[in-house]
Design a protein around this nucleic acid. Structure first.
Lengths: 339, 339
DNA sequence: ATAAAAAACGTGCACGGGCACGTAAAAGGA
DNA sequence: TCCTTTTACGTGCCCGTGCACGTTTTTTAT
């Protein structure tokens, strides 16, 4: 692998000048710049990470990690993976500043400002669908603060990458799983969060359209929108169960929408319904073990955290953003026996 | 983080001496050694990876990767993950030598010798259950060639770590899944590989004992042992289907034991049986998409490959072996919709 | 024309650790 | 005792990059 030194020798300048050209610092004559860039391209120069890492030790990276939704246990797992990765990347002298913020946009914007004041070099953001945040990210980008979003959808935003799940595929997978569990015959009730949140919307959309196409024997009895996206949605679920005593299956688009319903689901319906949801936060695990929830479709919070940090650090070390702006990670199904 | 320089200053010797003590090279007086080690412990010295990486560039690591079973497509995925990790660890100037070897022990032992002749610094081995190989590994260990095994079981062997799956849990998960799919009522036929191979044995054992305990409604009609652990086990499966036309479920302990049976499974039995197997090699994916296989329980070949290399490199860089000698990775269930 | 300012580039240290080489001091042999 | 070998340790270069500081050359202003 070519080094700066080699480039310097071949282009007849000093290594310092090569540094200036490749890292856009100081001033260089246009002619020299052309020559150096030419040679660098010829040799396919890739900066040596070990060298950068060593030099970076005094000038440590500082990365802000912003989690929206203070109590969301999904983020615990994201952070776990992220921190493991942090250890692994410790040679780059990288530190993180973690903040958990309520779901209101105002606090969120303020939190971003605070982090910028703390002179962070990069930002990890999870999750957020608000247009104002999106604009903010664009401005950060212009100030040379790169950003990775996790489990968010803001396609137009100028971030390095989005790391998360394809929500439509989430819905399709859920539908396929339900068909497998019920043999293709069922009456299903859907409990979802606010339709304005992409995660919920697409999980419903992917689910229903897939069933419509491939499993006409599964009938969607009702869709309940539970705006109060927290862990106390007892009301919504019990209403659904009362209204439709003939349900044989339930589909929850997130852990947040069925909290506290453990007791009523099996009691309300004559036959034990097949219940599907997403992720394996502790409350969900509990309900799976008790047999209330049949199976859950897991995103990979650990890997999401790890990858988001890896991408950001890679970029800060002089790498290019990944070709794909959206990196969808695999889903997997879990049941009680392989939680 | 403490550096060698700091240790040197505090213990009143030169940095070179600290190097000698900590890396056991050259000769040092017992007294000096004691002092340096004392201070190193006090400062909680951890070698700086960036520094090692930089210095290691001229003295590259060479790691042998031995895969037993020439045509096993599972290893393609292991290698994929391993090579991704290799890129990631490129700063350590690490190279690999990959060899695929037939299943006979003689060739395997010879292959190990060849690699040692090529002056490898470490070895990755997948998979092997033979006692002779195990002894060989122990001897390598004594020659300072560390080894990581993948999807193998040789608990007593002096390797850094085993990376793979808990086969008993594999069987339990399969049993739980079958119960979920069939509602707890089924007649199941088991097709397995040689009982002398731990992977098959424990997947059967975990499966049967779990059903026995928790799902008495699922009856095991027959267990067919298919010694010819390759992709032409048409005979064994068709015999099973003829003998038991009342089967409602099939359980394959590995991809290798059902190759070529696609056509006959659905044809032979009046009702479409629930079919479960392991991993998602191309042939399995195909059969899942066609609806012959209902679901598969996936190990994480990619992660296994990546982790095994990571552990080995970490050790070669002066790290300690992981506390746990056996690292069992998560299982996940896949169906057509989330392959 | 001459001083001052700006542009263009070279030099050298730092980062942490591996390792070869040289040189003292201690041990051994005659 | 003197010479040789061994043991113990210091010195200094290298790996590839960032960056501060000089130094030289060119441009601009007076």
């Amino acid at each position: 692998m070519a080094t700066m030194k080699e480039i310097a020798e071949l282009s007849g300048v000093s290594r310092g000048t090569v540094d200036r050209v490749l890292n856009h610092r100081g001033t260089v004559s246009p002619e020299t710049e052309r020559k150096v860039l030419e040679i660098a391209r010829l040799l396919d120069y890739q900066p040596n990470r070990a060298g950068i890492a060593l030099a970076a030790q005094k000038k440590k990276f500082k990365i802000g990690v912003l989690l929206f939704g203070v109590e969301n246990p999904f983020f615990d797992e994201v952070m776990e993976g992220l921190k493991d990765k942090l250890d692994e990347l410790s040679i780059y002298g990288c530190t993180i500043v973690e903040k958990r913020i309520p779901l209101d946009v105002k606090s969120q914007l303020a939190a971003i400002d605070e982090l910028v004041d703390e002179k962070i070099h990069g930002l990890i953001l999870a999750p957020c669908n608000d247009i104002k945040i999106q604009k903010k990210i664009d401005r950060l980008w212009e100030c040379n603060i790169p950003c990775v979003t996790v489990n968010t959808d803001m396609p137009q935003s100028k971030r390095i990458a989005y790391v998360g799940s394809d929500y439509l595929k989430c819905g399709q997978t859920a539908a396929g799983l339900l068909a497998l569990l019920t043999g293709g015959e069922a009456r299903v009730g859907i409990v979802t969060g606010s339709h304005s949140v992409l995660c919920h919307e697409e999980r419903v959309c992917g689910f229903t359209s897939y069933l419509h196409q491939k499993h006409p024997g599964i009938h969607i009895a009702d869709i309940v929108e539970n705006h109060d996206d927290d862990y106390r949605s007892y009301e919504a679920v019990s209403l659904l169960l009362e209204k439709h005593p003939d349900l044989s299956a339930l589909y929850f688009t997130a852990a947040g929408v069925y909290g506290g319903c453990r007791a009523i689901i099996n009691a309300a319906l004559p036959q034990a319904p097949k219940v599907i949801t997403f992720d394996a936060v502790p409350s969900t695990k509990e309900m799976i073990k008790k047999g209330v929830i049949s199976a859950t479709i897991c995103q990979q919070p650990n890997e999401q955290g790890a990858l988001s940090l890896a991408l950001l650090v890679d970029y800060l070390l002089g790498g290019k953003p990944p070709e794909k702006n959206c990196i969808y990670m695999d889903l997997s199904i879990k049941i009680a026996e392989n939680l």
